[in-house]
Design a protein around this nucleic acid. Structure first.
Lengths: 119, 119
DNA sequence: GGCATTGTACGAATTTTATCGTACTACGAA
DNA sequence: TTCGTAGTACGATAAAATTCGTACAATGCC
C-alpha cells in the first residue's frame, strides 16, 4: 500500500538573459512597441504573474506569443509554465539594478491626449 | 552716408513637435536605434550645439540626415541652420519635464562588455 | 481514452525601417 | 562668378519587424 502522492504543480522557467549582457538600446527598442509597452504596464500594475490570455490583447495568439518572447529575450520579463498556462512576470528588480530609474520613468510617463501625433 | 551694417548670422529653426503630443513609446522607439542613441549621448556630453558632420558617424550623409530627422520629429532634439551648417541640440529640459528621469536613466546606463548579446 | 484549453513553431505575407546613390540647393570664400 | 562645403530630397533597395494562419504539443478534465 502506498501513501497518496501530493503533487505540487510543475513550474518550468524559460531561458532568459543576464541583464549585464543586454544593452539599453535593446530594452528601449523592445519597449518602443505599443503592444509590448502595454503588456509591461499591465504587469507592473498586477502584483502577481499573469498568464498570457489574461491581457486581452487585440491580436492573434501567434502575434502575442511573438511579443512575449521578444520581451523575455530582451530581459524585460521572465516566463514560466504551469499546467497549460504560461505566466509572465516583470523583472523589475533586476531592471532597476541594471538600469536604475529607467522602468519607473517609463511607467510614470503619461500618454498624450490621444489626438494627433501621426495621423 | 550710411552706418556699417552688422549682420548677426541668420538662424533658422526647423519645426519640431510639442512633447505633450509625443508618446513615451515613440521616444523609446527612436532611442532604441544604436546610431541615434549614440547621437544623443554625444549631444548630452557636449555643452554646445553640434553640427551634423562633427559626430563622425559611420554612415552615409543621407543616412545621417535620416536619423537626425527622426530624432527631431520625435521631439528629442531641435535643429537649426546657420550658414551652411545644421546644428543639433538635445531638448533635455523639455524631455525632463515631459518624461521625468527618463533621459538621465538612459544616459547613465552602461554598455555591456561588448561580448555576446546576439551574435 | 477523448476532448477542450493554452499556447508554441513554422512559414508566408505585409509593413516598417534603415541604408545608400545621385541630383540638387544654399551659403561662404576666393 | 565660380568653386567648395554642408546638407537635403527623392527614389530604389535591402533588411527587420510585425502579423497571421495553420498545424502541432502538453495538460487537465470528463
Amino acid at each position: 500500500m502506498s501513501a497518496p502522492v501530493v503533487r505540487s504543480p510543475v513550474r518550468k522557467t524559460l531561458p532568459y538573459p543576464d541583464l549585464r549582457d543586454v544593452s539599453v538600446a535593446a530594452v528601449l527598442r523592445v519597449l518602443g512597441e505599443p503592444l509590448r509597452l502595454g503588456i509591461v504596464r499591465a504587469l507592473a500594475q498586477s502584483d502577481r504573474p499573469m498568464n498570457c490570455s489574461s491581457f486581452g490583447l487585440s491580436c492573434s495568439k501567434s502575434t502575442s506569443t511573438y511579443h512575449f518572447k521578444s520581451l523575455r529575450e530582451s530581459g524585460v520579463i521572465i516566463q514560466f509554465d504551469v499546467g497549460t498556462s504560461r505566466y509572465s512576470e516583470l523583472r523589475d528588480a533586476a531592471l532597476e539594478e541594471r538600469f536604475p530609474g529607467l522602468l519607473t520613468a517609463i511607467l510614470e510617463a503619461e500618454e498624450p491626449a490621444a489626438s494627433a501625433e501621426k495621423p
